[in-house]
Design a binder for these strands. Structure first.
Lengths: 163, 163
DNA sequence: CGTGAAACCGGTTCAAA
DNA sequence: TTTGAACCGGTTTCACG
């Protein structure tokens, strides 16, 4: 991926609703050229979607926490992510290296709601939990700076699955 | 905040580019009514912005990690977030309860880049670091389910009778 | 892969209730 | 606060370089 695409991705990461007209001006391309590039980036999966960034305090979910989980039975098949997917309070699930197997990011309404969620997590995935409560968030959702690195990451992203 | 606004926020959280026409159909309101509500939500800060969700692998930043930091001198003023803000590899910074003071979420191109970043973090904020590498991410950026809970911001009657 | 122009559709404003 | 209508601008497609 080269310069202009990186530029477009960066701009959209910072403002997911930027118009093609503005993107065109910022990149020096015509509107239809940018349009074509954005569609291609979406199709390739470089741009996976768009989301509104919401204020969780304003929306009744002021408590954020990181929940690290560890299987109670290390021999059992590890399907924790699927088992936990139904819990909508879980915003993200990362498999990690280290003592624990996953780190979950959760958003709840209150300490009691967190307590309840932890029980559900333990029951649903047969895991033990270790919770780190977030006190405040100086910043979040910052867009990365896409350096002019060479051939970015992946060899090819195919939608058709043909090797 | 009531029903329809919650609905709008949820929809926009899932698709930040959903058109007002579609939002109108989903909510049963007219286009201009939804338009007005969205603008109001933006102005109130409930909707803080919009962002494209990008595939970090495809963009040359395949390595994600959580970096917990702890001040070397616990007596020194804690201005780590500001001191680290210039490092664009840091996507988020959360102040947390527990043994460490902040959890950083970082995205880098390689293990070497991570090593370099950790040095910059330690040097910039005078902290020690503990890093947890992300191996894979089953899911991320999931939109919360906004329950008909009470209001967030203005007073509201409580069921438990606590004033 | 780029372009400009045309057609289309969504975004935006407005007066009215 | 909601609504429909009118207006304007962005989106999308197209034929072509």
């Amino acid at each position: 991926m080269e310069e202009i695409d990186r530029r477009i991705v960066t701009l959209l990461a910072r403002d997911g609703r930027m118009s093609f007209t503005d993107l065109a001006r910022e990149t020096g391309l015509s509107v239809s050229a940018v349009h074509q590039r954005v569609r291609r980036l979406e199709k390739r999966g470089v741009v996976r979607g768009y989301a509104a960034i919401i204020d969780h305090d304003a929306v009744g979910l002021p408590l954020t926490a990181f929940v690290s989980i560890k299987p109670i039975d290390p021999a059992a098949p590890d399907d924790a992510p699927e088992r936990l997917a139904h819990l909508s309070a879980i915003e993200a699930c990362h498999s990690v290296a280290g003592d624990e197997s996953y780190i979950l990011k959760v958003r709840v309404a209150s300490p009691v709601a967190l307590e309840d969620l932890l029980q559900q997590i333990r029951a649903s995935a047969n895991v033990s939990t270790r919770t780190t409560v977030v006190l405040s968030t100086p910043y979040e959702h910052r867009a990365p700076e896409l350096a002019p690195s060479e051939e970015a990451g992946e060899p090819e992203t195919r939608q058709d699955g043909i090797a």
